[in-house]
Amino acid sequence: MAETSDRPATDAVDDVLAGDRVGGPVPGAAADPLVSEPADPGRPRRRRRTMSGKFVAGLVILGLFVLMAAIGPLVAPYDPSNLGPDVLAPPSWQHWLGTTGTGQDVLSQLLVGARQTLIIGVLAGLIATAISTIIGVTGGFVGGIADDLLSLLSNVFLVVPALPLLIVLTGYLPNGGPVAVAAVISLTGWAWGSRVLRAQTLSIRRRDYIEAARVAGEPGWRIIVFEILPHVRAILASSFLFTVLFAILTQVGLAFLGLVDVSQWSWGVMLYWAQSADALNAGAWWWFVPPGLAVALIGTGLALLNFGVDEFINPRLRSNSLRGRAARDSAGGFTPVVRTDPQPSEVQR
């Protein structure tokens, strides 16, 4: 975390919370206020290089799930709520993923539930990213007391445990629709992105081109939208992906607790019914394994995509830059990184 090493303890609250996403699935480098040049259109070669295996794999996984959400309800073999004669049947040709305790088809529930799960995730991701952009970038750009207050606000939201707060919130909003659930989730999920964006904004707000825009009399909002945002868009993307993952995991947890409308199929709702019908003790693994696996896979896809973005921001993280011989020769590990093509951003450091 370059932020800490650059200016020790000058801003204690910020330093301690300085946005390394250690807790999240994608840790480390994005908070590094090294200014990557992702937005530089004059360097297409670099962009192609970020299409690493991880990035492509993440894209493929997510593509499949998006497809599933799009056409799932159309291709589902049964009505997911339809009660059937085969109760708790293990996977068979009639029911590829078996049936639930009331004879409902698990595969159909999975296919139909994908849409609701993804919609809430993406919606919450969008709202949260919007909030974190407004608060983080504005705070970083404006500075002074406004910045202190805004970053205090995001630090408070970062520390307060999300799930208990969400439970209390959704408890008071019984049977909220997808939009309400997404809004409530984004209320607890914006703080991390805001911190990272603020750190990034701080590091570029004294750049010459920003000063030039200021001197040229550009209004503040215009500088933020046209000068700063394009330069933090890699971080913006990474923060969005992370928030979507957070939102999906959180809504599955909320649905599992029965805090959403449990008549609307989503993966969390499937787990809720599996748990309340004691699928575990009935040995009906086909009931609770698929939805959880789907959540984990979609999370992996998002995380892989995020790695792509991270490695784009911080080229040192690329693990495949040291494949093969180079890796074996450096058995001790302490080898200066292979910099085949030093970019200005790396030299800066």
């Binding site: 300085a18 996403r21 807790g23 840790p27 445990p161 999300a162």
Partner: peptide
């Protein structure tokens, strides 16, 4: 330093 974020994640 990132413990703050992680711990609330883990506790949840």
């Amino acid at each position: 330093a990132g413990f703050a974020l992680s711990i609330s994640f883990v506790v949840s």
